[in-house]
Design a binder for these strands. Sequence first.
DNA 1: GCAAGATAGTTTCCTAGTAGACAAAATTGC
DNA 2: GCAATTTTGTCTACTAGGAAACTATCTTGC
Lengths: 150, 150
Amino acid sequence: MTGSVRDDVALGALGESLGFLLRLSQLESFRDFYHGLGDLGMRPGEFSVLMLIAENPRIRQGVLAKKLMIKRAHMTKMVQAMEAEGLVGRSVPEDDKRSIELHLTKAGHARIAAMRTPFEAHEARNLTRLSDAELAEAKRLLKKYLGLPE
Amino acid sequence: MTGSVRDDVALGALGESLGFLLRLSQLESFRDFYHGLGDLGMRPGEFSVLMLIAENPRIRQGVLAKKLMIKRAHMTKMVQAMEAEGLVGRSVPEDDKRSIELHLTKAGHARIAAMRTPFEAHEARNLTRLSDAELAEAKRLLKKYLGLPE
DNA sequence: GCAAGATAGTTTCCTAGTAGACAAAATTGC
DNA sequence: GCAATTTTGTCTACTAGGAAACTATCTTGC
């Protein structure tokens, strides 16, 4: 994708490996995320945590971790950090004393709002690599791969 | 994808984010890799290093790192470990005393051979989630996204 | 009702991977 | 030809994320 050095390297069977292609694509996508939103001091994983809490007020920490494929231990650390930063509030639900429910604070909502435009720009930049139809199809296929509803 | 807990969580805008879907898919794919090949004591990244060296004998370490989107520092560590393990040999090319060329040892080739069947099984398991045509299309789209030749 | 089993979050330790700095060697620009 | 700049691999310090162990709480099976 840049320069001729890369084009001289034969991928062999790896070039036909979905896992490999997914890995490279993910790295590429995250690189673009950091490029466009890195100044806002938030990593992709943290952003997805905030977004999901916003979309699902009072979601339980473990449920969130599972949905985002983040390990519980790490989710604890992330949430604690975001609580300390004032973005997230935590509470213990009455019906399950083991759990933690999460909600966004005003600052959390403001953070998300601040990231909206750069995030959309990040997403739009996908169209420099794929057409509108191809992008839609890629998303559809990935959702199917993941077993997510359309 | 398992249980009803996950289905109750709304993804919102994230569900339409290519980067997010790529991330989850990559995690999923790697999980399957570890499930099928974890016993062989090799991680996806290491496997891809060995494969690419096999496919490109005498490839330079930095070229390899760039192709696999692995940072130079980490590539050094990985290659040193594999050299210590007897899988990879290193040499300094005559025309560039700064560089390191890599080649597979007999043991390296044997390692790859031992991983062939489980790797192919790992790839084949993609067909439990996508059809033949969908899998081919997904790969095509990812390659296009990455700017790789077909 | 109660013990056994499972779950939820936490803490600590560990690892995979990165950033930054550096020296040696190659390349570039004049 | 030569100084300035860039490249290549290495090492060290750091970080993002996971594994394992643990406690408190809930659920299940009898």
